[in-house]
């Protein structure tokens, strides 16, 4: 159990406190960390709390980018009118996390650093192409969220000596939108059997850019480039969507789990959720409902 609980006043102060206390780890919402500590899965000498650093909690738009502080809570992301309008996939994903209590304290960066492959907001951030700004002793580096995973539960960000200060999402501009969907055995306090986020852009009736992230079908949020590529250069129709969905199904490798569902079922659900998410994203991007013969 940690012997000290320290409050950092700035990101630099946080790094200094971590450096001064060997074995320390930073804590934001603590919704995963506190359980790990209680169950002795992690040994920590001191906790450095970053929730009192205002700049880590910003949600704003600047120079064609959306900037979200690492310690922005799921509740604030889910209820932000800016995020709901510009990055609807992220707002929906944040609203799907845990329960109101968990969302009130859990943070975006925490969801990424905990490195669970199906963390809802991490899946959305990967689909959106978000880039994390990480501050460490050697200075700042910028890494796409998709590249922060070393394995299940293992992040390339070391919360004992680094801090994610913010996430940046470049806005694609006209004709873009995004969507998120999940399948879970109950409506709250439930890890997803499957979740999918997609971001698309449509110009002059043709899909120009697309990103699709699916989980848990790999040890990390799975960015399905083949499925996305099958959309680019094509008109977003029910057929195009169905093709992308079946490409995604082929690429997905869900495991069998008595708790979360069989691999076969989740493979079948990949088709359904990818199709639904693309349908929603394209409908929003074009302000026109896509007639889908199967729905």
């Amino acid at each position: 159990m940690p012997e000290k609980y320290l409050f950092a006043t700035s990101p630099a102060d946080c790094l200094a406190l971590l450096a001064a206390n060997p074995g320390a780890r930073l804590i934001a919402g603590g919704t995963d960390l506190v359980i790990d500590l209680k169950e002795k899965r992690r040994q920590v000498t001191a906790l450095v709390d970053i929730t009192r650093i205002p700049e880590l909690k910003i949600i704003t738009e600047a120079n064609g980018k959306i900037i979200l502080g690492g310690a922005a809570t799921h509740t604030r992301v889910a209820t932000s009118s800016l995020i709901r309008e510009k990055l609807p996939a992220l707002a929906a994903a944040a609203a799907a996390v845990g329960s109101p209590q968990v969302r009130n304290v859990g943070t975006l960066a925490g969801n990424v650093v905990n490195a669970q492959p199906a963390a809802d907001t991490a899946v959305a951030l990967v689909a959106l192409g978000a880039v994390a700004t990480i501050l460490g002793a050697e200075g700042e580096r910028q890494v796409p969220v998709a590249d922060l995973y070393a394995g299940v539960g293992r992040s390339l960000v070391d919360a004992g000596r680094e801090i994610i200060t913010r996430f940046t999402v470049d806005l694609w501009g006209e004709g873009e939108s995004s969507a998120f969907a999940r399948l879970s055995p109950r409506r709250a306090l439930s890890l997803p059997m499957l979740n999918v986020a997609a971001r698309v852009q449509v110009r002059e009736g043709i899909c120009t850019r697309a990103r699709i992230c699916i989980a848990p079908v790999a040890p990390r949020p799975f960015l399905c480039e083949e499925a996305a590529a099958s959309l680019v250069g094509r008109e977003p129709t029910a057929e195009t969507i169905a093709r992308a969905a079946s490409v995604a199904k082929e690429a997905a490798r869900p495991r069998d789990s008595l708790l979360r569902g069989s691999g076969a079922y989740r493979k079948d659900m990949t088709v359904v959720l990818v199709a639904r998410v693309l349908n929603e994203a394209f409908s929003r991007a074009t302000s026109r409902k896509i007639e889908n013969d199967v729905e």
């Binding site: 329960s99 109950r186 409506r187 709250a188 708790l259």
Partner: peptide, 9 residues
């Protein structure tokens, strides 16, 4: 992991 329904369900 035991899916007792929540008030949302």
């Amino acid at each position: 992991d035991y899916k007792l329904p929540t008030i949302m369900d």
